[in-house]
Design a protein around this nucleic acid. Structure first.
Lengths: 177, 177
DNA sequence: AGACCATACCTCGATCCCGAGGTATAACAA
DNA sequence: TTGTTATACCTCGGGATCGAGGTATGGTCT
């Protein structure tokens, strides 16, 4: 996830680590902050894999900066990841939102973007609940516990809104393709 | 998270590992499946910490079962965790839903349940977005990218539904307290 | 009788992540 | 002058997680 987000931000323009940190904090930090001890090793991994390069520059305000720039391989890895996200990227909302945040990078490929949205559509279309009566998913009305009923009500509202958005956006993408 | 879910399920009644696995699959498996390699070490950790005990029984259908039962310390740890969840448990939707799934275990303490819901209420009340203009959070209408706009629309629908549910449920809990 | 599947549990290496701590510089306030 | 804040980067140990693999048993189907 972090990998996807880093590549996604760097696709727009080169950044140094500290800027990247602030971008990540805005995107996911409200829900799940990312620590230094996570970010910097992740950058090193991406560098070791040849997906980005560093250029040291004198720091504007303090210590020297390491400006990070995507390589061709990095750009290719990002686009490939966006075209064929893992199942977990589609089902887990946190991960899915990260995919959405950067899906515009597939800008010349409306069909590829639509294919990704259709995977989410298929996932949301599966009958599912958090609670089951045997193998039958239970609806909010059947659950007496107010907290569990809340889970189901909130999930239903989210799914309704997302399906609505998915359908209108897919229609636009299909027109473009 | 896994720890909370295991303790929460065992609070209802003793289970063996395989049953636990199926309960967990129903609760979170649709979004994020849990592998054997995660579950069994987690059980061992809880056992080592004295939060649960195992009793080996001849297997009903196959290999011998290890029935898992909460200890007093395990029950206390569960309730304490529910009373004072970490910030991440409140902000991250996956974790928050796990808390909600077991919050009924604080059944004699409507004030404690209400206090937990109020923490979520405070979190949702903070002005936040995924995208910022300087330090000002941007609304869906200001974002041109359809995918990012979708994120904001979906998040808004979720927040609206959840605030609605939180307020009615808090009113009920306050009446009970 | 043999194949196959569901039940039931476990281990191991690789990877990832977090938190705590450390090292600097420069600006600004007390 | 001293303290604090913001910038900017890094390491290390501990812990959690995953995936792949392994070991059984018992029932069902052919």
């Amino acid at each position: 996830m972090l990998k996807l987000a880093i590549l996604g931000f760097l696709h727009d323009r080169p950044l140094h680590g500290y800027e990247l940190r602030r971008h990540l904090a805005a995107l996911t930090g409200h829900v799940r902050p990312i620590s230094d001890g996570t970010l910097y090793p992740a950058i090193k991994r991406l560098e070791a894999d040849g997906l980005l390069v560093r250029a040291t520059e004198p720091g504007a305000a303090a210590a020297p900066r390491h400006t990070l720039r995507l390589t061709g391989a990095g750009r290719a890895a990002l686009l490939e990841r966006l075209r064929t996200p893992e199942d977990l990227d589609v089902s887990d909302e946190n991960r899915w939102f990260t995919v959405l945040a950067f899906l515009r990078h597939l800008d010349g490929e409306p069909a590829a973007q639509a294919a990704v949205l259709r995977r989410r559509l298929a996932f949301l279309g599966e009958p599912a609940s958090f609670f089951y009566d045997g193998s039958r998913p239970m609806g909010a009305e059947e659950v007496a516990d107010p907290f569990r009923r809340g889970m189901l009500l909130i999930a239903r509202a989210t799914t309704t809104a997302e399906l609505d958005w998915l359908r209108t956006t897919l229609a636009e993408l299909d027109r473009a393709a």
